[in-house]
Design a protein around this nucleic acid. Structure first.
Lengths: 188, 188
DNA sequence: CATACAATTATAAATTTGTCAAATCAGAAA
DNA sequence: TTTCTGATTTGACAAATTTATAATTGTATG
């Protein structure tokens, strides 16, 4: 996966997720043992919807992971995060330190809006934004190589479940071509 | 220093401070070398006032320290913070996990508003709040022991520069008594 | 002391967050 | 299938955050 997310925003998201008393409490509660939403809502004396909101913030930041268990959506801590030091977490690669040209800034903004942890949250309705997003995804294909629909789907599935729309989008926008049932990425 | 700050809010403040792209950038810039506000404003292409706002958020969170150098207020990183792991930083003492009774909640709220990193930001104008704040500060004195004005000042100076107002407040509110030039804390 | 420079504070506007209630969804169980 | 239970989404609204401009404060230099 390539240049899809601005590391800067991603980092900020992590810290922001932890920057709220309720969410810190949630993390601490889940740390003692994995828990589901309703349990937390009761303990914290908040609405289930509110807890859900906070949980998704934490999950999007990569701090929590969820798995289904019967009725319940059980959240647990992503242990891998815990060992990192502030020093490591704070660090932003040199390349990101200057916001860059306005053009790139807009591109980053769009990518940051629609991608979360490498996955496409939603396919942009606006052409201009869809274009930017698809351009970023098409990088995953080698140019001038034939892919079966199967293979195309497999790659696209990493980004979004609605692979059909993505596939169609690629053709519409002119990033890929189809011929004789095979797909190939156009060289830019 | 005692129960003055809710560790929970304090932690959240730390993370919240880092939870913004501009502030992360600032931290990274300052990390390479200490810098002053205007310099950062230029690099980041933001108003000086805006940078000032972000800097104070970072300073209040304990991440930055400032020292004057001629005209300039030079900010540098508090190195001590950097080594801590997320695991350590996230941890909230057991006692804080339950929000507590409403009565205490109000008290915490007031204390959190007026204290920052153990220092009093401002002496509350409202009596009720001043009372809460002073009560918390008076804990630093042993009851039934005589203190000279000098000694009183020395303790109070840890909390706020305007020691005179604090001293007077203590008497007004009835937390301390003065007699023959000596001060003593009343047993509650 | 007046002027210049940097920093902070005050104010205001725009944006984002946090919360709840109501509606919708999704998986299990009857 | 219908129903039950927990989870998520949506809409609304209050609260907070972010940012800019203008005013103020604080140092230092001529």
């Amino acid at each position: 996966m390539s240049n899809i997310e601005s590391g800067l925003e991603e980092r900020a998201r992590l810290f922001k997720a932890l920057g709220h008393p309720v969410r810190l409490l949630i993390v601490n509660l889940i740390r003692t043992k994995p828990r589901h939403g309703e349990e937390l809502a009761t303990i914290l004396n908040l609405q289930a919807a509110t807890v859900s909101y906070h949980l998704s913030a934490l999950a999007e930041a990569g701090l929590l992971q969820a798995h289904k268990d019967q009725y319940y959506q059980v959240y647990s801590l992503v242990e891998a995060m815990l060992g990192q030091t502030l020093s490591e977490l704070i660090h932003v690669p040199q390349s990101e330190k200057t916001p860059g040209v306005a053009e790139d800034a807009y591109r980053s903004k769009v990518l940051n809006t629609f991608f979360r942890r490498g996955r496409l949250i939603q396919i942009p309705a606006q052409l201009k934004k869809r274009q930017i997003v698809l351009e970023s995804i098409v990088q995953e294909f080698e140019p001038e190589r034939d892919y079966s629909e199967q293979q195309v789907n497999q790659v696209l599935l990493e980004f979004h479940d609605d692979v059909a729309s993505l596939r169609r989008g690629m053709i519409d926008v002119g990033l890929m071509t189809r011929g004789g049932g095979m797909y190939r990425r156009k060289m830019s």
